[in-house]
Simulated scan of single mutants.
Amino acid sequence: MAKSLILCTALAACLTIAAADWSQGTATFYGGPDGSDTMGGACGYENLYNAGYGINNAALSETLFKDGASCGQCYLIICDGSRPGGQYCKHGTAITITATNLCPANYALPNGGWCGPGRPHFDMSQPAWENIGVYQAGIIPIVYQQVKCWRNGGVRFSIAGFNYFLLVNIQNLAGSGSVGAAWIKGDNTGWIQMSRNWGTNWHALSGLVGQGLSFAVTSTGGQYIQFLNVVPGWWQFGQTYNTYQNFDY
């Protein structure tokens, strides 16, 4: 018989969840009580409120981060009271976070610490973590699963770079939440495939200054959307452009 996880609410109602739907991991927190120090990070989102993600965020261990391919993905996390450390769980609670940063291995500690190779670990913003764990614990056992992201508004494109190097941070994806492939098109060009530079920054080595810009994105869920005429020809580096389209998966 398959094992199951039982989640009990404060009203003593219990929800039995098939264990096959969940993976085991651990969670710590960082960023202070207001989560302000979680802004920025290895996905390149800078201000997480402006990028559409807010305070319910986490830095993922290298195993989960996948060199930035997981940036923007959403995870449902529950403290696992059945494992050692579970006495620090806030039972009957759960939190959905967005992956916005990398928790690097610390090789001053055995096996690289909690974020070392092979360890699924979430270093969550303190406000998000305290939804499910007691502050004094510092670390708790969890179960987690990737879930669909829900976002307000459309996908956003933040432009940096210079001359023949265009660096675009793609933000606020719903659905799978993360970018699988991206293209850019100027008024005077065809579609140019972009490459992941770091995090969710994608670059094109093309002279597109002075041209209006369109984008095309395939999510990691496999959905392809063209975002046409998003950026006017008078755009400047350092600006962010919103759209009215977003992903379902």
Rank of each mutant, 00 (worst) to 15 (best):
F29P: 04
Y30H: 02
Y30M: 01
G31L: 05
G32H: 00
P33W: 04
P33N: 00
D34S: 14
S36W: 08
D37N: 09
D37Q: 10
T38I: 10
M39R: 14
M39A: 15
M39V: 10
M39T: 11
G41S: 04
A42N: 03
A42I: 03
C43W: 06
G44N: 03
Y45S: 08
Y45I: 07
Y45W: 11
Y45Q: 09
E46T: 12
N47I: 11
N47C: 12
N47H: 15
L48N: 14
Y49K: 14
N50E: 15
G52N: 07
G52E: 06
G54N: 10
G54I: 11
I55F: 11
N56E: 15
N56T: 14
N57K: 11
N57P: 08
A59G: 07
L60E: 02
S61T: 04
S61E: 05
L64P: 03
K66Q: 03
G68L: 01
A69G: 01
S70T: 06
C71K: 00
C71S: 02
G72P: 05
G72C: 02
Y75K: 08
Y75F: 15
L76W: 08
L76Q: 09
I77P: 10
I78A: 15
G81V: 12
G81R: 14
G81K: 14
P84L: 00
G85R: 12
G86E: 06
G86V: 07
Q87G: 09
Q87N: 09
C89R: 13
K90S: 15
K90T: 15
H91Y: 13
G92L: 10
A94Q: 14
I97T: 12
A99I: 13
T100M: 04
N101I: 11
N101R: 08
N101E: 08
L102S: 02
C103H: 07
P104C: 06
A108S: 06
L109K: 11
P110Q: 13
G113E: 03
W114T: 07
C115A: 06
C115F: 03
G118R: 06
P120C: 06
H121K: 05
H121Y: 02
F122C: 02
D123M: 00
P127V: 04
A128I: 04
